[in-house]
Design a protein around this nucleic acid. Structure first.
Length: 647
RNA sequence: GCCUCUGUAGCUCAGCUGGUAGAGCAACUGACUUGUAAUCAGUAGGUCGUUGGUUCGAUUCCGACCGGGGGCUCCA
């Protein structure tokens, strides 16, 4: 019998008969491994674990722990979903059914224009599990294009036929499990029995091939797991996320609201939310002054001309809020969608020398952008928002250094706010299509290299994304991971060679010649709205002490101690500690409960004892009674607790 | 914009198959004067998102519009 060499991930080489499968190799290692193998990675390519191997190969067995193993599992689950739907609703047509980040979906079209609703979920889930228990194998067959076309013509599935049209004859495969056959590249898990838990999440409309001009299919989102327990954990996580939803907490904690009369996507900041916002602003303002930024203020509207110069009108104009006109002359103005053109004009307001650079202009600039109604979402997608914007005008040779300084600032912001896990995504040019980028290739080269170098120097965990750069320059985006492990894109830093040219910006260099500066756009928060949304969900509404809109609640035991309570509150306010006094005729238990629900970090309880001894009793949110202390000591501790943040 | 779900008092929600609405909390009034997560009683509060239609009659059925949620990039 002929043997082949299989190299395992640890470097060991073992010999197996030609035609052996990943599954058989797993079995030779251990029975337990065999039960967990979902797919096999052969020389970097993912295969069915049941597909025979005929040549010497590097092999990695994929399980649920591997991202690719999960993806295979979910993709196979999508087939199971389709099988169940076909069994329940014959003549259903199928689009595509891929695995996604968390689960999978299948785009389908039910016969006779019928729609699917949540009511049918249970029935489908039941069917899926029933089919899963049959432990049907996923059978791979290679088919000719003609046979593939014949099969789906007979089945009457024009979506699959369209997909086949785009494929090359000789590279087409079908997979069959039970009575369901699907056009599929694979790979798949060994059999449906691996799927122990399924849950349909929701249905949504999705255009065929993402094209708005084409038919909208029904997309069914679902997740599946190899163990019932994992589904439960996943659902618990979703519940936790729901509890932390910034829209829910924003309402409960009275941070912001929306009004139909004001307009959708236009947040109204309530007093407590405004306090939070202002603290964030002041915090960054202070850090920016220290980092050499100059605050500026520009109007909320700008002449349409300004945006014609910047190019934004041409690029975004038709999808934007439309111009407003002056009554007499009919001049056109736009609600500003960007602060950069205004800042460019500030740069241009007087002659600049190379010695003036870098010039860093910062503004908490509120901008307005038209988002499609369906895109709006709480504070994360809105039509009016405030960017913690700044533009750094510098020389080409200063780009790297300035980039480094911006990274320092962003990291300082993240650390101060309790985001400890973050990565940086560096977006550079698509090397195969350099023509579409504006600016001197040599400058690009220098900037791309500089960004990567400086990001690594700063110890950032970076991911390079080729082809993701904007046409006007490379960029770096910060992704943070929140307390539930969800990823959010926050701060961004972008190099721009384009805008300074369009505005004909110039400075006099050491050579007494005119030069065009480079511009760096940057926003550590991104937008205050989005940032506060992410922060709220990250800390579940328990804001860091220095940010909490109300830091303390003074709770007198009864009316008799109101005067003493007033004295305490006044003393705290004089030390810049913000809080409120609960003077209601309620029992102390009630006052405490209400303060806990409002997530007030500290409660100060004063009654007979405290008044007599000139002390206060402390209770901490989530932690309970902390005993009594003097006012001075408490203020001292309080200050120490927030000292790490320069406010 | 499109698909889908959804819209009842300030908030959270109940209201079976059509007969013009109910609870808890909040608010207000009063009593209680309180020791570490909800004191008791009373009062008030809604043209059931808007607007057409079906019907003797609609919060309940149908349509349109408005708002909210989920989704519309993940390529067999």
């Amino acid at each position: 019998m002929e043997l082949i060499n299989i190299t395992l991930p640890d470097g060991n080489v073992k010999q197996y008969p030609k035609g052996t499968t990943g599954l058989e190799i797993a079995q030779s290692i251990s029975e337990g491994l065999m039960r967990n193998v979902l797919a096999a990675k052969i020389n970097g390519e993912i295969w069915d674990a049941t597909r025979p191997i005929f040549a010497d190969s590097h092999l990695q067995l994929l399980t649920w722990k591997d991202t690719e193993g999960k993806a295979t599992f979910w993709h196979s689950s999508a087939h199971l979903l389709a099988e169940a739907i076909e069994a329940l609703y014959p003549k259903t047509k199928f689009g595509i059914g891929p695995a996604i980040e968390q689960g999978f979906y299948y785009d389908i079209e039910l016969p006779d224009g019928k729609m699917l609703s949540q009511e049918q979920f249970e029935e489908i889930e039941k069917k899926m599990l029933e089919l899963a228990r049959q432990k049907n194998t996923y059978q791979r067959t290679e088919v000719s294009k003609a046979d593939a076309i014949q099969y789906f013509t007979e089945k009457g599935d024009e979506y699959k036929l369209e997909l086949i049209e785009g494929l090359t004859d000789g590279q087409i495969t079908f997979y069959q499990q039970g009575n369901f056959t699907d056009l599929c590249r694979g790979p798949h898990i060994p059999n449906t029995g691996f799927i122990k838990a399924v849950k349909l999440m929701n249905v949504a409309g999705a255009y065929w091939r993402g094209d708005v001009t084409r038919k909208q299919l029904t997309r069914i989102y679902a997740v599946s797991f190899p163990q019932e327990k994992e589904l439960k954990e996943y659902l618990t996580l979703l519940e936790e996320a729901k509890k932390r939803d910034h829209r829910k907490l924003g309402k409960e904690l009275e941070l912001f609201t929306f009004s139909e009369n004001v307009g959708m996507g236009l947040p109204l900041w309530l007093p407590k939310g405004t306090l939070l916002r202002e603290r964030l602003e002041n915090f960054l303002r202070k850090a920016q002054v220290k980092a050499g930024y100059s605050p500026v203020v520009t109007p909320h509207i700008g002449s349409k001309k300004l945006y014609e110069i910047s190019g934004h009108w041409e690029k975004y104009g038709k999808d934007s809020f439309q111009p407003i006109y002056t009554p007499e002359e009919g001049e056109q103005f736009l609600l500003k969608p960007m602060n950069c053109p205004h800042h460019c004009e500030i740069f241009a307001s007087k002659p600049r020398s190379y010695k003036d650079l870098p010039l860093r202009l910062a503004e908490f600039g509120t901008v307005y952008r038209y988002e499609q109604s369906g895109e709006l979402h709480g504070l994360t997608r809105v039509r009016g928002f405030t960017q913690d914007d700044a533009h750094i005008f510098c020389r080409t040779d200063q780009v790297k250094d300035e980039f480094g300084k911006v990274i320092d600032l962003v990291l300082y912001v993240f650390r101060s706010l309790g985001f400890s896990e973050y990565t940086a995504q560096v977006s550079i040019r698509d090397k195969s299509d350099l023509g579409k980028y504006l600016g001197d290739p040599a400058d690009w080269e220098m900037a791309e290299k500089g960004i990567e170098e400086v990001a690594l120097e700063k110890g950032l965990n970076i991911v390079i994304e080729e082809g993701e750069a904007a046409f006007y320059g490379p960029k770096l985006d910060f992704m943070v991971k929140d307390a539930l492990g969800r990823k959010w894109q926050l701060g961004t830093v972008q190099v721009d060679y384009q805008l300074p040219k369009r505005f004909k910006l110039e400075y006099i260099g050491a050579d007494n010649q005119k030069h065009c500066p480079v511009m760096i756009h940057r926003a550590p928060f991104g937008s205050l709205e989005r940032f506060i949304a992410v922060l709220t969900e990250h800390c579940a509404g328990d804001f860091p002490l220095w940010l909490a809109p109300e830091q303390i609640a003074v709770l007198p035991i009864s009316e008799k101690y109101h005067e003493y309570a007033h004295q305490v509150l006044t003393a705290l306010e004089e030390s810049d500690i913000r809080g409120y006094l609960d003077e209601r005729d309620e029992k102390i238990q009630r006052k405490i409960r209400d303060a806990e629900v409002k997530k007030i970090p500290y409660m100060i309880i004063v009654g007979e004892k405290e008044q007599a001894e000139g002390r206060i009793s402390i209770r901490k949110h989530h932690e309970g009674d902390k005993g009594s202390t003097t006012l001075e000591d408490f203020i001292g501790q309080f200050k120490t607790e927030i000292a790490h943040v320069k406010q």
